[in-house]
Write a protein that binds this DNA or RNA. Sequence first.
DNA 1: CCTGAAAAATTATTCGC
DNA 2: GCGAATAATTTTTCAGG
Lengths: 170, 170
Amino acid sequence: MPVQTVQANKIGVFGSMSVTLDAQDRKILAALTRNARIPVAELARQVGLSKTPVAARIRHLEEIGLITGYRAILSPLKLGLTHVTYVEVSMHDTREQALQQFNAAVRAIPEVEECYMIAGGCDYLIKVRSRDMADFRRILAEKISVLPHISNTSSHVSMEAVVEQNFRLD
Amino acid sequence: MPVQTVQANKIGVFGSMSVTLDAQDRKILAALTRNARIPVAELARQVGLSKTPVAARIRHLEEIGLITGYRAILSPLKLGLTHVTYVEVSMHDTREQALQQFNAAVRAIPEVEECYMIAGGCDYLIKVRSRDMADFRRILAEKISVLPHISNTSSHVSMEAVVEQNFRLD
DNA sequence: CCTGAAAAATTATTCGC
DNA sequence: GCGAATAATTTTTCAGG
């Protein structure tokens, strides 16, 4: 059975609670986080168990939704997507309906890599990945600035990626 | 032979520059980005080619460094890491040596998920993932605030993740 | 709940065309 | 680049501690 069936999310009160993991589960997750294609046999060796319990643990971690999937990681550099810009967005309407309309619209923009609603001054922080400054200008003008209920935006261009997509397991 | 070797480098002569991809390569990357464990046979079906060229294309995409790896994706929620905070960091020394010392130090903090050097007012933008506010306070006090050459920090707490780790292939 | 090995299924590779 | 046969790898199963 393909693994992506794991992504059947059970969204609800009980399905979204955090889970306690033992040291071996953490080793399994650390290894799968480094390499999604590691064989269970090799994983078992690293964890210090036999294949059977390791396979069962992986299956369980998938079923409870802790492992949401397995993905290939691409080089933004090789894709020509070297420019990263953070856009602060202020809203002129922060009522629930307006926020949900904004959320839906921002999710439809493929160039938006991340977006968080922020407490305090600016209302949203959007991370945009683009080819270059001209590409970003187009994205800002055609996609970001036309988002619903926006009051104004402020862009902050990255000069260097110091840490990109780091993980934390402990 | 894959097409991209014909017109290999778009810009410049260096091996780290961007690559031109045909529609089939993009389909392969899109599929592997959704599911790293998809069998070559299934991938071939989706792309509209047979297994042989698809396997060769994947191998090539790995060799040129466009596919950098395959990783399991974990649910921050299930791990109890629901709090995201962006920390703006200003430096009191922006000479090259100071920046490199800062970069090395920030890379050693596991709770830092991302860090970009920013043009303009604040010098760095750091994304921190924590269990809760108390956990963040500890990280800020013990790990962020003690980074070398820092002048001051300003924290922006996320209230909602609207988009998390979205990809762009086109 | 784990072990270890045999069995079964799946997947990748190698050919001639 | 195709398709089938081959070869390799990986997962699953099961009796036993």
